[in-house]
Design a protein around this nucleic acid. Structure first.
Lengths: 138, 138
DNA sequence: TTGCGTGCAAAGGTTTTGCATGGCA
DNA sequence: TGCCATGCAAAACCTTTGCACGCAA
C-alpha cells in the first residue's frame, strides 16, 4: 500500500523514536526540518492520516493549542483488546492488559447494557510519577 | 456570576432540551436563529465556554467535521464521582455509578499506579439499542 | 449608572486541498 | 514508464478576539 519514500521513512522513524510521548504535526515538521532535508507540512499530515487509519498511530484531540497530538502505538499489539491509561500531566501512555479490565467490560455489558470499545476508550488521570509530583507541590 | 440575559437563557434552555445528545456550536446557532430573535455565534461560544468551565456542560472533541460537540450534564450530579458511557453511534451519554466502577479506580491505582480521573474519562462503545441495530444490519 | 453581555467582522490557528513536479517500483 | 508521493501556496474550517453599542442589576 503506497510507496516507501525518504519522507515516509523519516516520519515513521521519528514517531517510533518518541513512542513514549505525543507530538503535534507541527512539532514533527520542525524536528524533521532541522535535518539536512526536511519534509513538507502537508506530507506530515498526509502520513499521519494514513498511520492513524491503519492503527499504527493514535491521535489525541484537545491538546493545549487546539492542535491534535499523535503517538506511535504500533500495529503488533491489538489495542482493542486492552485499555489505555493516559497521563494528563506528562502525556505518557500506558497499555494496561489485565484480567480485571476484561471483567469490567463484561460487567458494563451485562449490568449497563453497554458494549465498551477498548480501542477507543482511554482512561485519563495521573501516572505514578506525576501523582507524586502533584502531591509534593501542594 | 454574570448577568442573566435573553441569550444566556435561550442557550441553557436549548442545551437542557437536548440533554440526551450532543450539539455543535454551529448547530445551536442555527437552531436559535430559526426563532424570532437569534443569538450571535460568538455569544454561543462564549456561553459554552463558561458552562464547560463550571461543569454544567461537557465538551467533546473529535466529532465528524472537526468541530467540538457540547452536551448538558448539569451541576447537580458530581460527575467526577462516576463514569460516563458514550455511545459512538447515537451519541447518548450514560452516567454509570456503581460499586464495580469504584473498585476499578482502586484497582488501577494499586496495581497500575495510575490515579484515574473519573471526570475526564469516558468509555466509548455502543449502547444497547445501537448494538442491536448494528448486529441486525450485519 | 456601572460594567458585563452582545454582535459583527476581522483575526487566529490548524488542517485540507489543488496542481505541477519529483521519484519509487 | 506509470502512478503515487511531494511541496508549495491557497483555501477551508472552527474558534477567538477587538470594539462599539446595548442592557441587566
Amino acid at each position: 500500500m503506497g510507496y516507501q519514500t525518504r519522507q515516509s521513512r523519516r516520519i515513521l522513524e521519528l514517531l517510533q523514536l518518541h513512542k513514549n510521548r505525543c507530538m503535534t504535526a507541527e512539532e514533527m515538521y520542525l524536528l524533521l526540518k532541522d535535518s539536512s532535508e526536511g519534509v513538507g507540512q502537508s506530507t506530515v499530515y498526509r502520513h499521519l492520516e494514513r498511520l492513524c487509519a491503519d492503527g499504527t498511530v493514535r491521535k489525541y484531540l484537545g491538546g493545549e493549542g487546539g492542535s491534535a497530538s499523535y503517538q506511535y502505538v504500533g500495529r503488533e499489539t491489538p489495542c482493542a483488546a486492552h485499555f489505555h491509561l493516559k497521563c494528563t500531566a506528562c502525556g505518557a501512555l500506558l497499555h494496561a492488559d489485565c484480567a480485571f479490565l476484561h471483567e469490567l467490560s463484561e460487567h458494563i455489558l451485562k449490568e449497563h447494557g453497554f458494549a465498551v470499545d477498548g480501542g477507543k476508550t482511554v482512561f485519563y488521570g495521573l501516572c505514578a510519577a506525576c501523582a507524586q509530583k502533584e502531591s509534593s507541590v501542594k
